[in-house]
Structures are given as structure tokens and as C-alpha cells.
């Protein structure tokens, strides 16, 4: 079954096509059932509330493209959040300095994953499963679980709670800039192509002259940095930092990536798809709540959506493969 996914001509736009359909369907339904769903304000709120998951998910995409996975991002977000609080409150650093240090910390956390994965050649699933516990544990140990950092200066909080002209939330530019950056990196650079090559075949990529270890290491470092950035956005939005921040975010991010059509085995996928995945999940949650439906339904439908998107993709590939086969069969009759 891995052959069905990883081989064949890249038809990534099709899964995105499916998601656009889902998104339109969601909008059509929730516009009828939800109170104030189809409003500009709500659209901007959805952007605002999906920033953290979105940041994690777009950076998860290159990780998954290389055939890896990063389960530690949610925990790293928590660790970065409390370290930011610690640096700002206890070490007395001005918040921009603390914020910069937090990004570095995120990069270091990602670096630990990268080192274990590339140097010791351990499977990413296991490494990040371990660091998932480790980072969360460190966050709890630093704060003894109890410490809660609050009272951040308004200059910082504005990044998560403020609005720019026209009701555009302050985190939207950050979120869009990062997403655009990742799109360029993954789809328009040699580095991006190298990631796909590694995802298809690390050995092949190595023979093609790609510095596989260095590329993979960078991907995890960047994913860690994204967790640091998401931590800042989180702290600014919620106004507090505690050791439990971001629990379970890794699953939401991975769900969005996979829903967006990126193959979990690596090699194929797109950041556009991930963005659509983030959007369709965020709209689903928001729309159900505005329709006064219980939150559990959002979880159940997320599962259904995942299975639906995957079956659609696989089904389509089988269908087109069969058609291609019958076409070649028909055309091969005459010349040979």
C-alpha cells in the first residue's frame, strides 16, 4: 500500500481539490445553521484562533515530506512558553530579548531531535515520542507544575490580542508571513526539492549528492523554532504561560498536514494543502460551535474527514491508474 501512495505521478492538487470542496460544503452548511458564521469578523477570528496550530502544521509539512514526524512540538511549545515567562519575569529580561531567546530555545529543542535522528539514526517517531515526554516533563519540572506566568506587558500581549486596521488580528501578518516563507522554501527552492527526494528515498538522495543529514537536521531545527514562535503567539493570545500549554497540539498539527494530502511516508505533499487542512478543521470547529453543536462532534467529524480525504485520494489514484492502464493497453495494440 505504500506503493500506491508514494509512487506515481504527483497529483497533489487533487487532494487539495477535495479539501476545497469540503471547505465550501462546510461554509454552505454553517452559513445556514450557525449564528453569525458568515461574517467578516468571524472569518478573521478563525484566522486568529488557528494561528498556533497553523504555525506548527506548516512547519510540520517539510518534516513529513522527508518521511519523518515530529510528535514533540506541542510539548516544546509548553516548554518554550514557560521558559519565556521565566526569562521575562524571573531573569528580568525585556520581552523582545526573552522572545528571541525563546526562539533559540525552540531551535535547540528541535536540534536535540535532529541530533538523535541524524547522528544516531533513530527513527523520528521514537525520538520525538521520547522528547514529547522529556520537554513536557522539563516544563513541569521548571515550574514544579505550579508556576503560572502572567501580567505580561501590553506591548507583548498586543501581538496576540490586538487588532490592526480593519479588525485584522495582530497575529495574522506573522502567521501569513511564516506560511508564505514555508511555501517558498518547500515549493520554490532546491532545499524543498531535496526534502522530497529524501522522502522518496534517502539513499537515492544521498547518491544524488544531497547532504541528507544536514537537510533533515535543518527541518527539525526549524520545526522546533516554529514551536517557539507558536509558544509566543500562544502566550500573547491567552495572556499566561503554564507547563500544560499546547497539550495535544501535535496531533492537531499532524491531522492538518495529513488532511492536506501530504503523504505520511514522505515524498509528496504541499504546504497549500496543509493550509487548506488547517482551514477546514478550524472552520469545522468554529461552525459547529456557532451552530450550538457539542464539541465532541467536531472530534468525530475530524476523524471522518481524515478517512474521507485519504480514501478519496487513494480511490482516485486507483481509478486513474486503471484508466491509464486501459489507455496504454489500447494504444499498445497497434504499433507493436
Amino acid at each position: 500500500m505504500s506503493t500506491a501512495i508514494s509512487v506515481g505521478k504527483p497529483s497533489w492538487w487533487r487532494s487539495e481539490f477535495f479539501l476545497v470542496g469540503v471547505l465550501l460544503l462546510e461554509i454552505a452548511i454553517f452559513s445556514r445553521t450557525g449564528s453569525n458564521f458568515a461574517t467578516a469578523i468571524n472569518a478573521l477570528e478563525i484566522v486568529r484562533l488557528s494561528a498556533e496550530i497553523g504555525l506548527l502544521a506548516v512547519w510540520m509539512t517539510p518534516v513529513v515530506l522527508t518521511g519523518g514526524i515530529d510528535l514533540s512540538v506541542g510539548s516544546l511549545l509548553g516548554l518554550c512558553a514557560v521558559c519565556f515567562g521565566k526569562l521575562w519575569r524571573d531573569a528580568g529580561l525585556p520581552w523582545p530579548v526573552a522572545a528571541a531567546a525563546t526562539l533559540v530555545l525552540g531551535a535547540l529543542g528541535g536540534g536535540l531531535n535532529a541530533m538523535l535522528i541524524t547522528r544516531l539514526r533513530l527513527p523520528p517517531l521514537i525520538v520525538t515520542l521520547g522528547s514529547l515526554s522529556l520537554f513536557r516533563g522539563l516544563a513541569e519540572a521548571i515550574t514544579r507544575g505550579v508556576d503560572n506566568f502572567t501580567g505580561f506587558p501590553s506591548g507583548f500581549l498586543d501581538w496576540g490580542q490586538g487588532y490592526l486596521v480593519g479588525g485584522i488580528p495582530a497575529q495574522a501578518p506573522v502567521w501569513i508571513a511564516v506560511a508564505a516563507g514555508v511555501i517558498v522554501l518547500v515549493h520554490y527552492t532546491v532545499f524543498g526539492r531535496a526534502l522530497r527526494a529524501i522522502g522518496h528515498s534517502p539513499e537515492g538522495a544521498r547518491y544524488a549528492g544531497i547532504a541528507v543529514n544536514r537537510c533533515v537536521a535543518w527541518v527539525y531545527v526549524l520545526s522546533g523554532t516554529a514551536a517557539g514562535l507558536a509558544a509566543l503567539v500562544y502566550v500573547a493570545r491567552v495572556g499566561q504561560a503554564k507547563a500544560d500549554a499546547g497539550t495535544g497540539y501535535e496531533l492537531l498539527a499532524i491531522t492538518a498536514v495529513v488532511l492536506g494530502g501530504t503523504s505520511i511516508f514522505g515524498g509528496t505533499g504541499s504546504v497549500w494543502g496543509t493550509l487548506l487542512g488547517v482551514a477546514s478543521l478550524a472552520v469545522l470547529r468554529n461552525g459547529l460551535q456557532l451552530s450550538d453543536q457539542p464539541g465532541e462532534l467536531a472530534g468525530i467529524l475530524t476523524g471522518v474527514l481524515l478517512l474521507g480525504a485519504l480514501s478519496a485520494e487513494v480511490g482516485f489514484k486507483k481509478f486513474s491508474a486503471r484508466r491509464r492502464a486501459s489507455v496504454t493497453l489500447a494504444s499498445s495494440n497497434s504499433p507493436s
Partner: peptide, 19 residues
């Protein structure tokens, strides 16, 4: 056909929401 089949659950569940 398979694709249509697999769309089923999504449509069905959204229809449930709707109703």
C-alpha cells in the same frame, strides 16, 4: 466509484449535522 463511495461518510455526517 471508490471516490464517490468514500465521499459518502463525509456527506452523511455533514447531513447529520445539518439535520
Amino acid at each position: 466509484m471508490k471516490r464517490l463511495l468514500s465521499l459518502g461518510p463525509v456527506l452523511l455526517s455533514l447531513a447529520v449535522v445539518l439535520s
